[in-house]
Design a protein around this nucleic acid. Structure first.
Lengths: 223, 223
DNA sequence: ACAAAATCGTCACAAATGTTACACTCGGCA
DNA sequence: TGCCGAGTGTAACATTTGTGACGATTTTGT
């Protein structure tokens, strides 16, 4: 196994090669290759091991009770799978993980993860940071979804974007079709709402460039 | 500080009094009293410490950009505050925490939390379990919210309930008004949909008792 | 530079959901 | 017992959102 390469991945960042070597020597960690189409983890299977994607990518698919699958999200290397669901009292994989292409992954049994995190404080911090970032994304999305109208969702999105880009004129960071999907609404509905907001004097919109015209009103919409 | 009482709270479960004593001796942990109305943590304030509620309760309030506050959820002792947001790269309190009554809390600086988790593997496991359970709840709610129609949400809810209660006849675990709020829909809309599902022969509904009539169709709805 | 593909803007119509209002049932309790 | 409040069932109407379709514009790959 190439330890130097492992130092590049977020979970092992800031460790020394020496520390990593000691960890790997002491624990049951295996590297595995997988082929395109292979299933790395079944949905609802108890999560007994941490899977860290080293190369390649997988699709997270959610099987409905009927067995049909719906794609949820893609995960690209290097990244851990379902890190938040490894522990907990009903710790099951939330999705089925299917390989999109050939690749390699690190498999670490749950017990070894605990041991590993105990051994090195920096590693522990990395693990907690990764978990927290993931949770923060979940939480932000939930906030978005719990807003009633498309107008409200778009207002929040715009305000955040304007804060991030430090300007009242912003460029959308993804196509409107993707944005509509993120909001969980139909694309034409989003377009229509943008048009209306323009008619109402809230914003100026031209393709992917938008300007905030009435920030006060956008803010008022949200609360 | 009463160590024996601390052993009752989930984070310290399964530790011995001796272990706990050693941890507390070595780390900067303070116990603090707070009065009703006091603000324990400001929204968007960087999370630099873990707050564990020992007695009393707090309200989580979310301030919109305008400054108005909306209640999000109540947290009762004994329970940690915002455990998932202590780490991560933009680690801020998601809500403002205001005391609902007089109480006491444990304050542990972030650095000490790391140290503490490194010192004791059982404690680490507890911490990860608590985080994971919290994340699982978030994730389940997000799944629910991302279903399109009320009928779909209710179908998922019913199927889960029926699995939990091991029967095709279930009793709702909360009032329909609360259920509607959980779904993020208006109560009459939920009622109407339940009536329609009954008309369509999917379920039998009488007040809080429901029977599943056509499980296959409920399952088909969801995918 | 060109064709193919992706993205965007818009429309008419259908379906789902929200709003408001009112009446009913049930359980606790003065 | 009789009242009261929480929870429930339902209705008419308003609003929001989805659907399917089409053409225009922009981007991408060769």
């Amino acid at each position: 196994m190439n330890l130097a390469a492992l130092l590049e991945i977020p979970l092992f960042r800031s460790l020394t090669e020496f520390e990593l070597e000691r960890i790997f020597a002491e624990l049951k960690i295996t590297e595995t290759r997988f082929k395109k189409g292979e299933i790395l983890a079944m949905q609802d299977e108890p999560a007994t091991r941490l899977i860290i994607l080293l190369t390649g990518s997988v699709t997270g698919e959610m099987a409905d009770p009927s067995g049909k699958v719906a794609k949820v999200e893609d995960i690209h290397a290097p990244s851990p799978l379902a890190i938040l669901f490894l522990f907990g009292h009903d710790n099951r994989f939330p999705v089925q993980a299917t390989a999109r292409e050939d690749g390699t992954a690190l498999i670490i049994p749950k017990q070894s993860v605990l041991r590993m995190l105990s051994m090195n404080e920096m590693l522990l911090k990395n693990y907690l940071d990764i978990s927290a970032d993931f949770a923060a994304r979940l939480s932000r999305k939930l906030n978005m979804m719990s807003l009633r109208t498309i107008r409200q969702k778009f207002a929040v999105y715009l305000l955040e974007l304007s804060k991030k880009q430090r300007s009242d004129t912003v460029t959308l960071d993804r196509p409107k079709s993707a944005l509509a999907e993120y909001f969980g609404v139909a694309r034409p509905s989003l377009e229509r709402e943008i048009t209306r907001m323009q008619d109402d004097g809230l914003i100026d919109a031209k393709r992917r460039r938008l300007s905030i015209r009435d920030k006060q009103e956008l803010i008022r919409l949200v609360n």
